[in-house]
Design a protein around this nucleic acid. Structure first.
Lengths: 331, 331
DNA sequence: TTGACTTACTTAAGCGGTTACTGTAGTTTG
DNA sequence: CAAACTACAGTAACCGCTTAAGTAAGTCAA
């Protein structure tokens, strides 16, 4: 078996508690003893058994991250950012992918709760906040990422999605577009907020908000390329046909661009396209894609930092904090 | 606090042990008692504290996955595949990203070892197997993924990389290329094996293996696009210049394609390019990229399954198992 | 020089489970 | 009808660590 505190204590002729305290810099231990302990710990390459520590302290030194799709660069970047911050403080990250399935998400969260994680960071695939109430009941620390629920106050880290919508639409307007369509998902907060920003931008430029130019789909983020392709085709049949399209995410934009290309129209001369998310390699696409970048890694980092202030009690769950990142236009 | 076995035992007027046994279908408990226990467990939504169980059993029901770059689709797909399999058996996955930094990897692994994970699945960023010996010493279950070390026998799940090299090169030869170059990383087993497959294919077609056509770089996988761009530029200066390029991975291929495009040559008429990895959206690129696909999710799944056979003792660390996936050509 | 404080450490208890051993009915057997 | 099982449940000990409470010395002011 691995080295335990007992081994070290025996070797040094002190009690286990002394070792425990020495290790955690309790001011109850003489410098001399502490040094001897630390010395021996190094020699034996001792590492405290975290399961035992967890049991004794009630803290697990584990944080959970549940995302709808780990393969999506957005979420893997969030994971990366969070992981980097947590690592430094000796925390580990349990990552689960819900595959955009609400039931699976609940199941994964149950698993995690059995492990008594210190903080749960969730980009939820739920349509409503119902299943999140148990976090409140069980007084578990919760941080929502990317997606939130208006009726459910909780810690939240995300991008300023309204600003994204405004920014993207403004960009198209500045490029001379006047008939601007919008394609994307529905029901999830980023989509709704971006749409609102889109409308806001149109209105403040004195342009009309036309319902037929807004194509939203449930779960439009999944298989966004298909959604984008089909939605764009339906937009192309309109008269007048849009001269600019704001796609709520990049895969959708790529689908839309494919549809435009197949129709024989040119991008961006005939129809300009802007996406959101700034997927890697966007610049290498057939037609380079303008996009709005969200600093995904920073979202992860901030979520992790917020997580610390929760476990350290600096931040209470009672007064949830919202951190919004500023988006950036990538032409 | 959360519900414990004690609560259930008290409620039912039985001992804690009875609850424990009932829960795990010990044949020591009458059907009647077992039903009562399970009933109450459901009512209270009880979940056993896994830290406690871990302490008592010595198993953590956790598996660790360390990858060099979580954002790389290859590794996130592996993670996804592994996660899916583990979930079903009640295991959770701790994921860490080493950022291609060998020291960071060692650090992450130390962290994990403190948690006594049941199996460690690693796509190692090490240049040699030295740091892996401690797994053998401490009798920890280890599975290597994607990258292996010839001098270090260990469980391994990956793709048949020689076959990839052969397949890709054959494809170029069939398309009529005769001057085939190869660009990619160095030192890591997949790169070396693919290169070997490349050479093998050339030789078996009676073509010469020209050293000046082989451009490898240390850490060529990182920032592959830059590597590919620079390497291709140097290849373009050769006379004769290659009419086909096998890039050991897709980002490299994209960099190479950029260089070719900037030089005014056409793809694939003047120079054909084939990559490896089949990145998402490859078909949407300026010039659609042929690639060799490795079923990454299956790699993850197989690694997870192998992990089970290790914890269940069906498979011993003494006789390491190697699982190679067959690659698939995506024109 | 004695009581009050410190300093440095130890002992005891418990976190929430598990395993190995004990005990007690009720049932079978010779 | 006593001996020997069997089926079911309970007791005790332990996993490795932490916290709270205790104790034995040394220090200091009165």
């Amino acid at each position: 078996m691995a080295v335990t505190m007992k081994d070290i204590a025996n070797d040094l002729g002190v009690s286990v508690v002394t070792v425990s305290k020495a290790m955690r810099n309790h001011n109850d231990i003489s410098l001399k003893t502490r040094t001897r302990v630390l010395q021996r710990i190094k020699e034996l390459d001792y590492r405290p058994n975290l399961a035992a520590r967890s049991l004794a302290t009630g803290k697990s030194y584990l944080m959970g991250l549940v995302v709808p799709d780990l393969v999506h660069p957005f979420f893997s970047l969030v994971a990366k950012g969070a992981s980097r911050v947590l690592r430094k403080k000796g925390y580990s990250l349990i990552i689960a992918s819900s595959e955009e399935d609400p039931d699976l998400e609940i199941q994964e969260l149950s698993q995690m709760m059995a492990r008594n994680l210190d903080v749960y960071i969730i980009a939820s695939a739920q349509t409503g906040p119902e299943s999140l109430h148990r976090f409140v009941e069980q007084k578990k620390s919760l941080i929502l990422v990317d997606r939130r629920f208006s009726s459910f106050p909780a810690n939240y880290v995300g991008t300023d999605d309204k600003e994204i919508g405004r920014m993207a639409t403004d960009h198209l307007i500045e490029r001379g577009c006047r008939q601007i369509a919008c394609i994307g998902g529905r029901d999830v907060s980023p989509a709704m907020d971006r749409l609102e920003g889109y409308k806001h931008a149109l209105i403040s430029h004195g342009l009309p908000v036309l319902e037929q130019f807004i194509v939203t789909r449930v779960n439009g983020d999944n298989h966004g390329d298909v959604t984008g392709f089909e939605a764009m085709n339906s937009l192309l049949r309109l008269n007048p046909c849009p001269d600019g399209v704001f796609c709520l995410n990049d895969p959708t934009a790529m689908g839309a661009m494919k549809a435009i290309a197949e129709s024989g129209l040119r991008i961006p001369q005939d129809i300009a396209v802007i996406g959101c998310g700034n997927v890697p390699y966007a610049s290498e696409l057939r037609v380079p894609l303008s996009s709005v970048d969200q600093d995904c890694e920073m979202i992860g980092e901030n979520a992790a930092k917020l997580a610390f202030s929760l476990v350290e009690g600096k931040q209470s769950m009672a007064s949830p904090k919202t951190i919004l990142m500023k988006p950036k236009l990538i032409p």
